[in-house]
């Protein structure tokens, strides 16, 4: 202890203490560094969310379709319900560039004892069809008293289709039933959704 006291007094450690502390302060400032990190990794970040969103739906009674038809014959050669909706989602630049796939899922519940075709197609602003038209053959139902017959179909729009559809502004769809007897009953319920697979790179 005496040696320490001696050092403290004689060697002048006390007077050096401020410099030692400042030195320490300087040292930690100089030593301060950021290591083992790589900020360029931001470029590797890829966002791949999947959005599951309702598409179109319908509940159509065959009798309504029949009564809309002017033809008075017992067997109607063809009954069609057409529709055109505004659908400009794919026209967005972000969507065109960053959506890698869209999976459309259609589910029909049919109680009409008749099969039919469901058809849809995208249109541009001039109502011109773009890319291919999609047709889903729907199974015949087993009558209004039976459980509805379910037809389920996935349609995959890949990158090529999404790019091709980048000018789409409308969606036209139709339900076409052939050779419909006037006493046909039952209904069609359509549910559909779209899975949008995004891939966004920073």
């Amino acid at each position: 202890m005496n040696i320490l006291k001696l050092l403290w007094r004689k060697v002048g450690i006390q007077s050096m203490l401020p410099y030692v502390l400042f030195g320490f302060c300087l040292a930690i400032s100089v030593c301060a560094c950021v290591k083992d990190v790589d900020f360029d990794q931001v470029d590797d970040l890829i966002l791949t969310p999947v959005y599951d969103i309702d598409f179109i739906y319908a509940a159509v009674d065959i009798e309504t379709l029949i009564t809309q038809n002017d033809d008075s014959s017992t067997i109607l050669p063809e009954v069609i319900a057409n529709d055109t909706l505004d659908y400009d989602f794919l026209e967005n630049d972000f969507v065109t560039d960053n959506i890698v796939q869209v999976t459309l899922t259609f589910e029909f519940e049919n109680t009409i004892e008749k099969g039919f075709d469901f058809n849809f197609q995208f249109l541009n602003s001039e109502n011109q069809p773009i890319d291919q038209s999609y047709t889903i053959p729907v199974l015949p139902g087993a009558g209004v008293d039976a459980l509805p017959v379910v037809t389920r179909r996935d349609i995959i729009l890949d990158r090529a289709a999404i790019v091709a559809l980048s000018t789409a502004e409308k969606l036209t769809s139709s339900i076409r039933v052939e050779e419909v007897s006037r006493d046909l009953t039952g209904n069609i319920i359509l549910k559909s959704k779209a899975l949008y697979f995004v891939s966004y790179q920073f």
Partner: peptide
Amino acid sequence: EGFETPEAL
């Protein structure tokens, strides 16, 4: 809940 179709009906 999506778009209802057909509009005509």
